[in-house]
Amino acid sequence: MEFLSAISDGQFLAIAGAAIAALFAGMGSAKGTSIAGQAAAGVVTEDPGKFGQLLVLQLLPGTQGLYGFIIAFLILSKAGIIGGAAVPTAAQGFQLLAAGLPIGLVGYVSGIYQGKAAAAGVGIVAKKPEELGKAITFAAIVETYALLGLLVSFLAYNGITIG
């Protein structure tokens, strides 16, 4: 019984929601930046002068992690874990948990795929450095969906009232 009440504790559920947001989005970004970074490193061995341009491309899939972090932070502060706000009930805890899902899951997948798009963009920059803008645009299209995930998470979070 103690176990059951522990996992239906509002604060625990909120932490779980924050963890999902930060965990998966962070994992997606880690993987995405790594994919882009590996491709960039290959180009830099040939032409170290392109480092600056390629760094921009590598950074692009890094934003999902930040979005996940934002939602995680907001959830933690609303659930009274950061700062001393009111403690959520079990139902509100589940709501916060659900609010963490969109950015967590979309962040994970879009981070990886944006990394692949950025890695392909590295190929553009390797041959035609002046076309960096186009390479960035291709990768940025993928990010749209992470942004939408962030918005849904945020709107859901914003609609939950505790207390």
Binding site: T63, Y67, T144
Partner: peptide, 11 residues
């Protein structure tokens, strides 16, 4: 798509 204005502002 312009909702990104809001999302980045929040971020």
């Amino acid at each position: 798509s312009y909702s990104r204005l809001m999302a980045l502002c929040l971020s």
